[in-house]
Amino acid sequence: MITVYQTPVAWGTPNLSPFCFKLEAYLRMTGMSYEVKLADLRNAPKGKVPYIELDGLRMGDSQFIIEHLKKKFGDPLDKELTPQQVAVGHTVRRMLEESTYWYIVYMRWVDEAGWLAYRPVAETMVPWVVGGDIPVATLRQGMLRILHDQGTGRHSSEEVQSLAIADITAISTIMGEKPYLLSDKPSSFDAGLYSFLVSIIANPVDTDLKQFTLSQTNLVRYCANFKKRFFANWTPPDMKAA
């Protein structure tokens, strides 16, 4: 049994962290047995979520975890992909995780309307997930500094959303009319794509980015079909602190 440590469930999704969500999607796609527990960053191998415990070993980082699981249990999702498909999947994954991710974070922590919606979620992370009784306002200031240093925090909301919309446009174009990102069969790259799209769509704030994503009929259809196939029987877990 794989124990997955992640942030609290919110906004009707398995997780608001696209990385936690991605890992859980991968586990459901491959049919691996797992349980979910509330993370404590003081116990996280890399100081972030998600992390897992398997056979007495704790491991962090969603992608390193997935690669470890592939080596240990086999690779049923990606074994038929061509080198070109793997290259496209890798490129999309890196764009989502190193570009689109920061736009999602910005819309939650910097944008005032986004922060009003996200603050109750952030409050559920204290003290367990963040590792102590840290005021939520202090958490926000820390995130603002991180975003400023990273670069995204130096932009206006309109500029950030225009960059994110360019990412979504590229993904929609790559997918075209295929049922999944790379072909007519799901791959591990779909675990990440689905988690990021839902992270945008689930935002209760009606942003330009959300509306644009919902206007891409192929992506909306993709999300609906993915949910029906892999998350139809999902119910919020009874998450307990580690």
Results as ranks from 00 to 15, higher is better:
residue 5 Y to F: 13
residue 5 Y to C: 08
residue 6 Q to Y: 03
residue 10 A to K: 06
residue 20 C to H: 08
residue 20 C to R: 06
residue 22 K to R: 10
residue 25 A to L: 08
residue 29 M to E: 06
residue 31 G to A: 07
residue 32 M to T: 04
residue 35 E to N: 13
residue 39 A to Y: 04
residue 39 A to G: 13
residue 45 P to S: 11
residue 47 G to Y: 02
residue 50 P to S: 05
residue 51 Y to L: 03
residue 57 L to P: 06
residue 59 M to W: 04
residue 60 G to T: 01
residue 63 Q to E: 15
residue 64 F to C: 13
residue 68 H to N: 12
residue 69 L to P: 09
residue 72 K to S: 11
residue 74 G to S: 12
residue 79 K to G: 08
residue 94 R to C: 06
residue 95 M to T: 11
residue 97 E to R: 01
residue 104 I to F: 09
residue 109 W to Y: 05
residue 113 A to D: 15
residue 114 G to I: 01
residue 115 W to Y: 14
residue 128 W to H: 15
residue 129 V to R: 09
residue 137 A to W: 03
residue 146 I to E: 13
residue 147 L to M: 12
residue 150 Q to I: 00
residue 152 T to V: 12
residue 153 G to Q: 03
residue 154 R to I: 03
residue 163 L to I: 04
residue 165 I to W: 03
residue 165 I to A: 07
residue 170 A to C: 05
residue 174 I to D: 10
residue 174 I to R: 14
residue 178 K to H: 10
residue 181 L to G: 11
residue 181 L to I: 01
residue 182 L to F: 01
residue 187 S to D: 07
residue 187 S to W: 04
residue 189 F to V: 00
residue 204 P to V: 01
residue 204 P to Q: 10
residue 209 L to K: 02
residue 212 F to I: 01
residue 217 T to H: 15
residue 219 L to F: 02
residue 223 C to R: 13
residue 224 A to S: 15
residue 225 N to F: 00
residue 230 F to Q: 07
residue 240 K to W: 00
